[in-house]
Amino acid sequence: MLYIVATPIGNLEDITLRAIRILKEADYIFAEDTRVTKKLLNHLEISNTLYRYDEHTKQHQVENIINLLKEGKNVALVTDAGTPCISDPGYEVVDKALEEGLKVTPIPGVSAMTAAASVAGVSMRRFIFEGFLPKKKGRQTLLKSLSEEKRTIMFFESPHRVIKTLKDIKEYIGNKEVVLVREITKIYEEIIRGTTEELIESLKDKTLKGEFVIIVRGNEQEPKKEKINKYANMKEEGEY
């Protein structure tokens, strides 16, 4: 079995009992960065065999993992933080395993995307996730294509590029309402809200650390307040 195991994005308490059991029972664990995962495994008192699986090693590691699965071994795949195969290497080995008729199962848990969405205070009924923006080629084209997007838009961004990305959002998408969530589950966790202009101004002189989730309100209109109030009143009166 190939297990896709979600791991904490900061606070080490954010791991499921099932994830701990799978990591203990796995014959092999493949990690994006073995140094990062080793800290987690040491915390959990797990000493299983650990190998690297990242952009530089995936070409030969996919074959290695498939061979291990065919031998009847249990393999756990983890990323540095959060749920694998979303904005990091991983989907290739899942794709190959499924092609080979091998068993793959998710061990769900924390994700920076859903964690940020839950505290943004923006409607997430319909949203699109663009991961990390291209650094150069295709960046402008992608942002322009989102200028009329009705759904909420979500990006990941590094601290040294977040101001540039906010400036690009303002230029190509507009002076939208934006929510920045950084250092989720960590000591300096922060939720910052405002327009792109306001956020650029407030962040320009700060030393920024930690990965950011950027949430941009789309053009879809929210339900009218009077309609919400009407339903609330009906519920109080036992009519709804």
Rank of each mutant, 00 (worst) to 15 (best):
G121P: 06
K24G: 11
L40N: 03
K73F: 13
I4V: 15
V110P: 14
M154R: 01
I214L: 14
K167N: 09
E237M: 07
I173L: 04
E201W: 01
L146S: 14
N175R: 08
E99L: 09
L203V: 11
A6R: 12
L143G: 04
I9Q: 01
A76P: 11
I200H: 01
V94Q: 04
G138W: 08
F129G: 06
M113P: 00
L203R: 07
Y172R: 04
G82D: 07
L143M: 13
Y172A: 10
G194Y: 07
R126A: 12
Y188G: 10
E55K: 02
F155P: 01
R161D: 05
E226D: 12
C85N: 13
N48A: 10
T195N: 07
E55H: 07
V213A: 15
T49W: 02
D27K: 05
K150F: 04
E25M: 02
Y53Q: 01
Y3Q: 07
E157G: 02
F155S: 04
I20H: 04
V122E: 04
E190Q: 15
R182I: 05
S123F: 01
L17K: 09
I128V: 10
E45L: 03
P84N: 03
H56A: 09
S123Y: 06
I15W: 08
G238H: 03
S123Q: 09
E236G: 02
M113C: 04
A116K: 08
V181D: 02
E100R: 07
G10E: 07
D27E: 12
K73H: 10
F127K: 09
K176A: 07
E211V: 14
V110C: 11
Q221H: 11
S202Q: 06
K150R: 12
A112V: 04
L44P: 11
A232H: 05
N67I: 12
R182L: 10
A19S: 09
G72R: 05
Y231S: 13
A31V: 14
S111E: 11
T79L: 13
M124E: 02
G121M: 05
A115I: 00
L40K: 01
N42K: 14
L142N: 00
K225C: 02
H160W: 03
K39P: 11
I20V: 15
N175L: 14
F127M: 04
I214A: 03
V62H: 04
V62D: 10
K103A: 12
V119C: 09
V179H: 02
K24I: 05
K39W: 02
V78K: 00
P89Q: 02
K227E: 13
R193D: 07
A115L: 11
E92K: 10
S47T: 11
V62Y: 00
I107C: 05
L199F: 04
I20K: 12
A232F: 14
R161T: 08
